[in-house]
C-alpha cells in the first residue's frame, strides 16, 4: 500500500518512530522548560496533523475547519473537568473525543451528502467559523479572554494516583497519550478500513461498484479524524492551562494542511514530520521580531516548491538514488 518503493522497511520505520518517542521522553532531562513546553505542544500538533491527513491523504476529503474539533475537544474537556471533577480524567478526555466524533458524524451527514469535495470543504470552513463565534461570545467559555485556570488533573490508576500537576508529569502524559493516538491513526490507516479509504480517495465511483458504501466510509473517516483531533485539543487545555478562541481560528485549521505539505502528503508520518519541521522553523525564527512569519512562510514555500513530495518525499528520492542501482536487477 505504500506509494514509494524507496521507503524504509516496516521494521526500520517502527524503529524510527520508537526513537522519536524516546527522544521526546528524554527531553526534560536535557532541555530547559521552554523547550519542553514547546515539545509537548508539538507532540499534540503532530497527532493533529496525522488526523487531518487521515481524511485528506487517505480518504480524499479536504477539510478547511479541522481546528473546530481541536477547539471543541479542548473546551469540552475544560468545561466538563470543572463541572464534573469526580469523573475519572481519562473518561473526560475520551468523552471530549467522542463528542467531537459525534458532532462530525452529524455534520458529515449533511456535508458529505453531495459527492463534490468543494461542498465539504466549504461546510467545514463554515463550521469552524460557527465554532469560533460561539466560543468567543459565550460567557461560560470565557469569551475573548479565554477559559482560564484549566487544571492538570490527578490521575487515579487503581494501585496509585499520579498527580499530573507535579513536575513534568503532564508532559510525559502528553507524550504517551499522543503516541497512543498516533498508534490508533496508524492502525486505522493500515487496516482493512484504511484500504477502503484509499480506494475511495482514488476513485469513489469504482469503489461503489465493489459494493463499498462510499458515503458511510467517508463519514467514518471524518468522525475518527475529528474524534482523535478532539482528544488532542482536550490534552492541550491543561497543558497551556488556558484556552482562547484562537484555537478555533481558521489559521489554526491551516496548520495541519501546512504540516502535511511540508512533511509529505503521501506518507503516513508526513504531517508529523511536517509539524516537527514547522516547530523548528518557528523556533529558529522567533527572535526575528516582526519578520518571523515572513521568513517562516518563505522557507515553507521554498521547501514545497523544491520538494513537491515534502520532506519525506525528498528523503525517499535520496534513498532511491543511493540504493537504486542495487535494487534494479
Amino acid at each position: 500500500m505504500e506509494p514509494s518503493p524507496a521507503q524504509a522497511s516496516p521494521l526500520m520505520r517502527f524503529g524510527l518512530a520508537m526513537l522519536c518517542m524516546a527522544a521526546f521522553l528524554a527531553l526534560p532531562g536535557i532541555a530547559d522548560k521552554g523547550i519542553v513546553f514547546l515539545a509537548g505542544t508539538v507532540a499534540l500538533q503532530m497527532v493533529f496533523g496525522l488526523t487531518w491527513n487521515l481524511m485528506f491523504g487517505q480518504t480524499g476529503l479536504v477539510s478547511f475547519g479541522h481546528a473546530s474539533f481541536f477547539a471543541v475537544g479542548g473546551y469540552a474537556y475544560a468545561y466538563a473537568a470543572r463541572a464534573l471533577p469526580q469523573v475519572h480524567p481519562l473518561l473526560t478526555f475520551a468523552g471530549a473525543g467522542l463528542l467531537c466524533a459525534a458532532i462530525a458524524a452529524l455534520v458529515g451527514l449533511i456535508a458529505l451528502r453531495r459527492s463534490q469535495g468543494v461542498y465539504f470543504a466549504i461546510l467545514t470552513l463554515a463550521l469552524s467559523q460557527i465554532v469560533y463565534l460561539v466560543i468567543s461570545s459565550s460567557a461560560a467559555l470565557g469569551r475573548e479572554d479565554g477559559f482560564t485556570g484549566i487544571r492538570r488533573p490527578k490521575l487515579p490508576l487503581g494501585w496509585t494516583t499520579i498527580d499530573l500537576a507535579a513536575g513534568n508529569a503532564y508532559y510525559y502524559f502528553i507524550v504517551v497519550v499522543s503516541a497512543l493516538l498516533a498508534g490508533i491513526v496508524w492502525w486505522v490507516t493500515h487496516s482493512r478500513v484504511g484500504r477502503v479509504f484509499r480506494a475511495i480517495q482514488q476513485d469513489p465511483e469504482r469503489a461503489a461498484f465493489l459494493g463499498i458504501p462510499v458515503q458511510r466510509y467517508r463519514l467514518m473517516s471524518y468522525a475518527i479524524a475529528s474524534g482523535v483531533a478532539g482528544v488532542t485539543g482536550a490534552l492541550f487545555g491543561p497543558w497551556l492551562q488556558i484556552l482562547t478562541p484562537e484555537v478555533a481560528h481558521w489559521t489554526a485549521s491551516a496548520r495541519p494542511i501546512l504540516y502535511t505539505l511540508l512533511g509529505g502528503v503521501h506518507f503516513f508520518w508526513g504531517p508529523a514530520v511536517g509539524a516537527l519541521g514547522f516547530a523548528v522553523l518557528e523556533y529558529g525564527t522567533r527572535t526575528l521580531h516582526g519578520i518571523s512569519e515572513i521568513v517562516t512562510g518563505a522557507i515553507l514555500l521554498a521547501v514545497v516548491l523544491a520538494a513537491p513530495g515534502g520532506i519525506l518525499g525528498a528523503v525517499a528520492r535520496l534513498r532511491q538514488r543511493i540504493t537504486g542501482k542495487e535494487r534494479r536487477p
Binding site: M1, P3, R192, R195, V196, R198, A199, Q202, D203, E205, R206, A207, L210, G211, I212
Partner: peptide
Amino acid sequence: RVFSDLTTEDNVVVSVEAHRR
C-alpha cells in the same frame, strides 16, 4: 478503472475484502 496508486495485488485485496464484508 482500477485504483491506480495501489499495486495490482492491493486492488484485488480491496475487492476481496469488500466482498467478504
